[in-house]
Design a protein around this nucleic acid. Structure first.
Lengths: 149, 149
DNA sequence: AAGATTCGTAACTAACTAAGTTACATGAAA
DNA sequence: TTTCATGTAACTTAGTTAGTTACGAATCTT
């Protein structure tokens, strides 16, 4: 798992879970999908459990499953549950009292707040089901072309 | 200078430059504004010079000045000149051939492209002159209240 | 009840990134 | 020609995140 790819890795995992809703998948299995370690998987998606996006079960036959239908899981929720900030801005004051700095921070904070609202709105329109459907479309396409060619 | 605050630090510097257009400011002076090192300043705003946002002059009496009127310098240009990505997404393929991954990357890339366009559009509507004006408004306000109180 | 399986989590290591620093060459003005 | 200031390379330091090891807790099977 590379840096800053937590959202894409998590989506990868979740689409696999959406395609395997009959039974739970172990951290071990999920880890192989994104070429990493079971512990990293647990740590990464722990927040998704708290948000009800996935459920986990210990012991024999345990593992991870979606917490609700893929149609009802948006990328906005997933991103939020991962604790990721959509924008990489930092505007902590460094010279308290400097009016120039205050003007800069005010402008950037305004921008950030509205931008995050906008992005979250866009992400909320994409669901896990959309990704799963696109996956299936690609899958069918492969089958068709390999027949045709 | 803290992490990921390059845009705000640079804006801080640029507003100071907008308020001091009579003469050039040295890296040394700019560095004190954001509590860092002259070399860090040069490195940070080197890209702005290439974009024509600032000019630099060596030697006695040299330093940095705005390359054009603050009204004609947008935050979008500044951000782009800094080489910052507005979105912190990484979607490099890790399992070439995995159709699930392809679906995830396609969705995220679509989102990222449109989101970046949106954000750039918003940032292009804010100019250095806007920030400078806000600074001056705050400055006047201090003067008024300190009289009144 | 015993044993196997799987998550939960703490603690440590390794890799990577970005800021900070030092040093010195280059160029321009007094 | 001396002084001032940028340009830039090279190195150090700090902080973040992924990766790893280890082990306790919970749950299922037999």
């Amino acid at each position: 798992m590379k840096r800053n790819s937590r959202l894409s890795s998590t989506l990868h995992i979740l689409v696999h879970m959406a395609e395997t809703q009959e039974h739970a998948l172990t951290s071990e299995q999920l880890a192989t999908f994104i070429h990493t370690n079971p512990v990293v998987v647990r740590r990464t998606i722990a927040g998704l459990r708290d948000a009800g996006i996935v459920t986990s079960a210990r012991g024999h036959g345990g593992g991870w499953q979606l917490g609700r239908a893929p149609e009802k899981i948006s990328l906005a929720e997933i991103s939020a549950a991962l604790g990721e900030t959509l924008l990489p801005f930092g505007t902590e004051p460094e010279s308290p009292g400097c009016l120039v700095e205050q003007a800069v921070i005010a402008a950037l904070d305004d921008f950030r707040v509205e931008a995050e609202r906008l992005l979250a709105e866009k992400l909320s329109r994409i669901t896990l089901a959309d990704l799963a459907a696109d996956f299936r479309r690609r899958y069918e396409l492969i089958g068709v072309t390999s027949h045709a060619v």
